[in-house]
């Protein structure tokens, strides 16, 4: 890829990012998923843990924020290609010289960053409404964890988008994947509370490693490696991101070829 093509792709990502943000910000489903639902979850978690809430408030805020991040990613990414097909714009996109994956980077990036607002709003609510003292234990570590989480989530979104466009049969799985990941990811309580057989499932999910890293750097909980609290989590997030990038390239190729053979690019 030459420099002018790279520059053109970056411009597409920036444009898609801004336009998608514009459209998502007024989408009531997105507003509910990334703002209202995580706030309700945070309120519920604070109520359940009301005796310990002042001490573990940051854990609950980060955890509920993770639910918003995951739900936002799952729903917006799974609809990223299907939505274009629904609105009849998929053919227009595929017919341009820009690869569909580049467009999707902008869309997923916008969705993930918008979903991050759930954590910010949860933080503000806990500070203003409950007057909790919110203290991030290791701010630089937390910011690095957050950056790696965003990378892992964006790349995961680039796998989810083509995967759910592969066949109408898998579209129904979207809703079923929301809550199990809250639990297996250890967003609001440690996975040690779950039966042992579920632990390998948690290890296979990048949201689990993201939650581990964010909890460990914000509240000091969650890590099983006291000397290098988040080294393994960061490494796993990078590993998953690399795997997702590889898988995503393959899946986009497969989806487009399949759609051009089955004539499903323009179907509703």
């Amino acid at each position: 890829m030459n420099r002018s093509t790279l520059r053109a792709y970056l411009r597409v990502v920036a444009t898609v990012f801004l336009l998608h943000l514009k459209m998502q910000a007024v989408d009531l489903f997105v507003v509910f998923t990334v703002l209202i639902q995580p706030l309700l979850i945070a309120l519920l978690a604070i109520y359940i843990q009301r005796d310990k809430a002042p001490d573990i408030a940051i854990y609950l805020i980060v955890g509920s924020g993770m639910t918003g991040l995951w739900s936002g990613l799952l729903f917006t990414s799974s609809f990223a290609i299907r939505g274009e097909r629904w609105y009849g714009t998929l053919e227009m996109l595929v017919g341009t010289p820009t690869p569909l994956g580049v467009v999707m980077i902008g869309k997923v990036l916008a969705s993930v960053l918008l979903s991050l607002s759930s954590m910010v709003v949860g933080y503000l609510m806990a500070a203003a409404l409950f007057r909790f003292t919110l203290y991030i234990m290791d701010l630089p570590g937390f910011l690095i964890s957050l950056a790696l989480t965003l990378l892992a989530f964006v790349t995961f979104g680039l796998v989810i988008a083509p995967f759910f466009a592969l066949s109408p049969a898998v579209e129904g799985w979207v809703n079923a994947l929301e809550f199990p990941v809250y639990v297996l990811g250890g967003f609001l309580f440690p996975i040690l509370m779950l039966p042992g057989w579920s632990t390998p499932l948690s290890y296979m999910l990048s949201p689990y490693w993201a939650a581990q890293a964010l909890h460990a750097t914000s509240s000091g909980s969650g890590s099983v490696y006291p000397n290098f609290p988040v080294a393994l989590d960061w490494a796993m997030l990078l590993l998953f991101s690399a795997i997702y990038i590889f898988l995503s390239g393959r899946l986009f190729g497969m989806v487009l070829r399949r759609a051009k053979i089955d004539a499903t690019l323009g179907l509703q």
Binding site: S4, T5, A8, R11, V12, T15, V16, L19, M92, L93, T96, P97, T98, V103
Partner: peptide, 9 residues
């Protein structure tokens, strides 16, 4: 139109 102009580089 701006969006498609970008898609056409």
């Amino acid at each position: 139109l701006r969006y498609f102009a970008d898609l056409y580089h």
